[in-house]
Nucleic acid binder design. Structure first.
Lengths: 221, 221
DNA sequence: ACATCATTCAACGTAATTATTGAATGACAA
DNA sequence: TTGTCATTCAATAATTACGTTGAATGATGT
């Protein structure tokens, strides 16, 4: 565009990407697209937003290099540009979890709303797995699951949970986890399972902490 | 604050962080703060911006949890909240590098032949230093050099390069670095050296990344 | 007390972002 | 062709972000 100094120009490009991530609706879109390609109106339904609105958000994300679009009949399927977009989201979430007191406050409010959401400690989980008392549920997208997960866990991404309920033994308690202590997906999973009468709790934190604590990690070849 | 659903509220918090990263000036501030704590007016001088402007940017970054401030006499020193902020910056940069053609265009504007500007990996540099094959050149200003640099590096700020060419052994290859992977100064240094027939390449990234990778750092007393 | 210096605040105008609406486009099927 | 459906475009109004200015605050030293 301009013949400005390239340093500034590069920072502007980086800022473009960050700006595209700087909107709650777009982040929610990314989380959905993290599960796979989706059409505009399906996303609009999931978010409960007007289609035109979602379309505009997706287009601004495409301009920023976050997603790509491909026409399929009368649908347009958007998908994440690659896994680096999820990585960027994850790193932003990490900053927020560590440094925004508000995040902590919101999560605590969530706890209170759901009376018995006592998380399961790592050691407890190991014991209960050994005793065959629990189903361990990894609700992250498959690519993240493939790169490392709690041994014996089954992978049902949050978006697929409803359609794959039959894979879960209703006689056992479910322990769900995802990316981190305040990762929303595991909250949602627990809420969804309880709504269907399945006993469920969250692991006290996510896979990064599990790994950091020196616990075993299984990798899908 | 609001009695909205907590999922939305969390996304808003994450968006707050991304939004704070979504401005070229603030990204440049982060790159400077990646080297260590800095006062407001020092940063203002480095960026060539009004102090009030920089102060406001820093405050918005503090509200987003990216930096913290600490008073020291009549100065206020800002520092990055922790290394996760640099990680977030890096991941955004990765997305931009991979998916924004404009980034590629800007970088090519600096170097005609991309194959020539293959950067040197950290491990390679260590090996080549051990073998006495390279001169490591830190092209940042002296104050930044003094607060930490690659052991054995010589400090020749970009502006002094022409007048201090005799300090560089033309028999060895030069590896230049500065503040980060896209810090322009090292690009310019490499171009200047090559124009004078000295073999030169860039280190793959800058000092903050070097430090973050657990590599040794030398500090001038 | 007073002056000085670094930083922040407050107020302003301009520009960019956002959601909303209704019309336009493009693909498909009858 | 015509109608239908998914998506995009264009225009709008409301909100928020940005940089600039000059005054206010807070710490230091005389």
């Amino acid at each position: 565009m301009s013949i400005r100094n390239p340093k500034q120009a590069l920072y502007e490009q980086f800022a473009t990407v960050a700006k595209a991530l700087g909107n709650p609706q777009r982040l929610e879109l990314i989380e959905h697209l993290g599960q796979g390609p989706r059409s505009v109106d399906l996303l609009a339904m999931k978010l409960g937003l007007p289609i035109a609105n979602v379309s505009q958000h997706l287009q601004s994300m495409r301009r920023a290099g976050l997603v790509s679009a491909e026409r399929d009949g009368k649908f347009v399927n958007y998908r994440l540009a690659d896994e680096s977009v999820l990585a960027a989201f994850a790193s932003i979430r990490t900053v927020a979890e560590r440094h925004l007191a508000e995040v902590d406050r919101i999560v605590r409010g969530y706890f209170d709303a759901r009376d018995d959401m006592e998380p399961v400690a790592r050691e407890d989980l190991v014991q209960r797995m050994r005793d065959g008392l629990v189903t361990v549920l990894d609700v992250r997208p498959p690519d993240e699951f493939a790169r490392g997960h709690v041994p014996g866990a089954i992978n049902v991404p949050l978006g697929d949970l409803e359609s794959r309920l039959q894979e879960i033994d209703p006689a056992l308690e479910v322990v769900a986890y995802c990316r981190g202590p305040w990762c929303v997906m595991s909250f949602e999973a627990v809420a969804a399972l309880r709504a269907r009468g399945i006993s469920a709790r969250r692991l006290e934190d996510g896979l990064p902490e599990w790994k950091a604590a020196g616990m075993p990690v299984e990798i899908t070849a």
